[in-house]
Design a protein around this nucleic acid. Structure first.
Length: 242
DNA sequence: ATACATGTTGGAGC
DNA sequence: GGCTCCAACATGTA
């Protein structure tokens, strides 16, 4: 569910709530729910993996974490962390992180680092990565300050697509390859969005959770790598360690 | 059916 | 202070 492209889809699905007044608020979120009552939703935004429900003087930041879910005009038996009703419409969030942030979302985020934003700035990513020569590529592809919205699927697929071993240090990548990494993080995020929307994302996974490398036909490697020891799927034959 | 998963945070311990 | 490790969050899936 929760990588950047999925958040853009969520934002689009919530667009009908823009301009509508909240008539009921529920949920176990540890925020002052009374702040939301009778307020008009001014905008729905996304940044990286954050969903932002914007009001005049504050916004609600929803992060779906590892297994967050949401239902629009539908519900299930477990308690929602946050439920917003606008007349006939309702959105229910389950097992998500919900934070109320004072101020406006525009000033709170840098959309140039958001892989899914029209403002995505690859030069900024290149500059940032040049400051991180000792980091592994499998870590920087999860760094939300560099590639906001990139997650474990995007990480694994991009490294496979550009044939780079996940434990390669950023500083060892030739400039051409570094730029290819940045370029493909964007390209694959847009493909992820398109495929997710068409419900065909999984069938396009080439290495993530695959048993064999589709290029070499040898068994794919599965290891827990990087700072967060996250699941890393790769081909030891065609992904080069620089 | 026990463990793991598209993720992040905060605290303990060193 | 900084780094690393770990638990917690709460649920669906294999």
């Amino acid at each position: 569910m929760p990588e950047g492209p999925s958040l853009v889809i969520l934002k689009e699905e919530l667009a009908p709530f823009k301009g509508r007044r909240i008539t009921a608020v529920n949920g176990y979120a540890k925020i002052d729910l009374t702040r939301l009552h009778n307020k008009t939703i001014k905008d729905i935004k996304s940044w990286g993996k954050h969903c932002l429900i914007c009001f005049d003087t504050f916004f609600i930041r929803i992060h779906l974490l590892l297994f967050g879910k949401y239902l629009i005009n539908d519900s299930k038996s477990v308690n929602p962390v946050l439920s917003l009703t606008c007349g006939k419409g309702v959105v229910n969030f389950y097992t998500a992180s919900v934070v109320l942030v004072e101020g406006r979302a525009e000033g709170a985020y840098d959309w140039e680092t958001d892989l899914m934003s029209d403002l995505w700035n690859p030069k900024k990513a290149e500059k940032a990565l040049k400051q991180l020569p000792d980091e592994k590529v499998c870590d920087v592809l999860l760094d939300q300050e560099v590639f906001s919205g990139s997650g474990n699927i995007i990480k694994n697929e991009v490294l496979f697509r550009i044939k780079v071993h996940p434990e390669t240090q950023v500083g060892n990548l030739p400039l051409k390859k570094l730029r290819e990494l940045i370029k493909d993080a964007r390209t694959y995020s847009l493909l992820f969005y398109k495929w997710k929307k068409a419900n065909v994302l999984k069938r396009h996974w080439q290495i993530y959770k695959r048993k064999t490398c589709p290029r070499c036909n040898i068994p794919a490697e599965i290891k827990y790598m990087g700072k967060g020891k996250r699941l890393t799927c790769f081909c030891s034959n065609c992904q080069v360690k620089y």
